[in-house]
């Protein structure tokens, strides 16, 4: 058994990979072992995996319903106990159950923003970098304009116009979060643009669209992924802020920011109503930050230690 493992490792860390697959797996293994050595990064990974599991099995984990009111005479604002781990809120709902279900909303927001903003930034950045000239100038000026904006205030204004709601909040956050990705992708494209292999592909008659999509974008993806992971905490905090201001998910939806807002009214006496969702936001954001830091160090050893 140990022998087997050793052979595997030797195959993965081989200096002379025999096939492309072996080289690729070997590189992934090297990145993974760098990542696994970083205890904080592993803690981050653990938190995010736990979040995924909780969101997937929310119905099984949560002991009560997240949205139906409890007994308003006896179950309101109960302190934490064995029956209600984090107490109950003003509608007699179990806070732990609401937090568990709220993880789905958090994941929904984070994933949707990443899926919208990252490709947009990637596309704009690579096109600007590869095309150069006036296309580059125009696209980068637009990017700079968005970068110069206060993100939260702009998102607020967008939500104000679109109307409150979780989907509109996602759109507003996505609109304000693509510019850094465009900047990064452009910078990377500029370094790749004059590489020999790009000239070779061009000589073979590849169209600019094909060069960008097949030969430049794939190389920009890893740094964009790292940046997206690092930004996820910011996305969660912005979404929670919008929820806190009543512009995100609407009641009775168990969105964490909105839960803090409703707990605010009794924070002086029943502090746990507002405290618990804040801790949840903090833990998840921390997880994404640790994971992002670890990914950056593992994928880009140059930037490590900064």
């Amino acid at each position: 058994m140990t022998n087997d493992a050793q052979t595997w490792r030797a195959w993965l860390t081989s200096e002379r990979p025999a096939s492309r697959r072996q080289a690729r797996l070997g590189r992934a293994y090297a990145a993974w072992s760098r990542f696994a050595d970083n205890r904080l990064a592993m803690a981050g990974l653990f938190i995010i995996l736990a979040l995924l599991l909780v969101a997937a099995f929310a119905d099984v984990i949560a002991p009560y319903s997240a949205v139906t009111d409890g007994d308003l005479r006896t179950a309101r604002l109960l302190p934490p106990s064995a029956a209600h781990w984090f107490g109950t809120d003003d509608q007699g709902r179990d806070i732990f159950a609401r937090l568990v279900h709220g993880s789905r909303i958090t994941l929904f927001v984070v994933i949707l923003v990443a899926v919208i903003a990252a490709p947009v930034g990637l596309l704009i950045g690579t096109v600007a970098g590869y095309a150069g000239g006036w296309i580059d100038a125009v696209l980068m000026r637009i990017t700079d304009i968005f970068l110069a904006f206060p993100r939260l205030v702009l998102a607020l204004a967008f939500v104000a116009a679109l109307g409150p709601g979780i989907v509109n909040a996602v759109i507003a956050i996505a609109i304000t979060s693509w510019p850094p990705y465009a900047r990064m992708a452009r910078a990377e494209t500029l370094t790749l643009r004059h590489a020999d292999y790009i000239s070779a592909v061009r000589l073979m008659g590849a169209s600019p669209a094909r060069i960008i999509a097949r030969h430049i974008m794939p190389l920009c993806v890893s740094s964009v992924i790292v940046r997206v992971t690092l930004d996820m905490a910011g996305i969660i905090l912005t979404a929670a802020g919008l929820g806190f201001l009543g512009l995100g998910a609407q009641p009775p939806s168990p969105e964490w920011g909105a839960m803090i807002a409703s707990g605010r009214r009794f924070v002086l006496d029943q502090w746990w109503v507002a405290a618990a969702p804040g801790v949840a936001i903090f833990v998840v954001s921390l997880g994404f930050n640790l994971l992002g830091d670890g990914l950056r160090d593992a994928l880009d050893p140059k930037a490590a230690g900064q």
């Binding site: 905490a233 910011g234 929670a240 802020g241 806190f244 969702p277 804040g278 903090f282 954001s285």
Partner: peptide
């Protein structure tokens, strides 16, 4: 970088 400012 991780804590919500309004909650703190």
């Amino acid at each position: 970088y991780s804590v919500p400012i309004f909650w703190l």
